[in-house]
């Protein structure tokens, strides 16, 4: 689309005196300026917390606790990052990475199998099964958190990372299945028919023909599932001990116990917890948007 419809609109409107619109009064240049002004405001508002954390993380301890607050680090230093990584934060980081990566992997394997069945195979009670999966994902985690704690406690997993990996792997499933189904439904059926003519089994065609075609979709889904696990808080808060705190839990607990002394370290931890996600978003913005809308479920 070479010509933006927004710039052609005023011309049409001005030729019709009956149309009430202020648009023709503004010159295209002013419109453009307003547009970018709005864009600037949106960017500042959306990124403000991250920018503030970034600035604070580069400040010296004196600067972070000065009154009134220092707005710009005069002597930028990375000492907060070093302190964070050498202290407990480093361990929380590792916990978050392990828990999120393993859970995402398990979720993806199980969800891919299920999504293929839902998207491609014919069987009875399919709708019911899918409704079951979807509706379960909408239940409040509070309806599950207590008995799950008892179950995990019963097998002595509380305080290990498995106490997070097990629930995360399961609770990521519905969203992942819906997203993968959307990607699978875009693959033309003819490919599987051709594979069948070549003597491949259904499963063989799925693994060797269909899966390679939805690799971008698999990747997108994995990213979204990963973000969900990385950001999870309620289960992590209930099922971890100091040794297995994840990043969000560690940061909140640090903030509630040592809030006044450690702004810089805290901010460094926050920046480090956000940066991988921001990088993924900037790289995969378009794919993530389409993936999220197909799944269209959870925050």
């Amino acid at each position: 689309m070479a010509l933006a419809p927004t710039t052609t609109a005023p011309a049409t409107e001005s030729s019709r005196p009956t149309a009430r619109s202020r648009a023709p009064l503004l010159k295209p240049l002013t419109r453009q300026t307003l547009l970018y002004l709005a864009l600037a405001v949106i960017i500042v508002v959306q990124f403000l917390p991250l920018i503030w954390a970034l600035l604070t993380s580069l400040m010296t301890p004196q600067e972070t606790t000065s009154i009134p607050a220092t707005l710009w680090p005069a002597h930028p230093t990375l000492s907060s990052y070093i302190e964070a990584l050498q202290g407990d934060i480093g361990r929380y980081y590792l916990n978050s990475i392990i828990a999120s990566l393993v859970s995402t992997l398990v979720t993806m394997v199980l969800a891919t199998l299920a999504a293929y069945a839902f998207a491609r195979l014919r069987f009875r009670w399919k709708r019911l099964a899918l409704l079951f999966v979807v509706s379960l994902s909408l239940f409040p985690p509070f309806s599950q958190v207590i008995p799950l704690y008892m179950m995990l406690q019963g097998v002595h997993l509380i305080g290990t990372l498995l106490a997070l990996i097990i629930p995360y792997s399961v609770f990521g499933l519905p969203m992942a299945i819906l997203m993968l189904m959307a990607f699978l439904q875009e693959v033309p059926f003819e490919y599987e028919e051709a594979a069948a003519l070549d003597g491949m089994s259904r499963l063989g065609a799925f693994v060797r023909v269909v899966l390679p075609m939805i690799i971008p979709g698999l990747f997108t889904t994995a990213v979204i599932v990963f973000v969900g696990d990385w950001n999870e808080y309620l289960f992590a808060l209930n099922y971890t001990t100091t040794a297995t705190y994840t990043l969000p839990v560690g940061i909140v607990i640090l903030s509630q116990t040592e809030f006044t002394t450690n702004f810089g370290v805290l901010s460094a931890a926050m920046v480090m917890s956000v940066v991988p996600l921001v990088a993924l978003i900037l790289l995969l913005e378009r794919r993530i948007v389409s993936g999220l809308t197909a799944g269209g479920l959870k925050g």
């Binding site: 990124f47 917390p49 954390a53 940061i251 805290l266 926050m270 996600l277 921001v278 913005e285 999220l292």
Partner: peptide, 20 residues
Amino acid sequence: LARAAILFPWAIPTATNSVI
């Protein structure tokens, strides 16, 4: 850029964001 900006608050961990 607008779309990335729109997406950003979704990706930032809710709990961490509240601390900021």
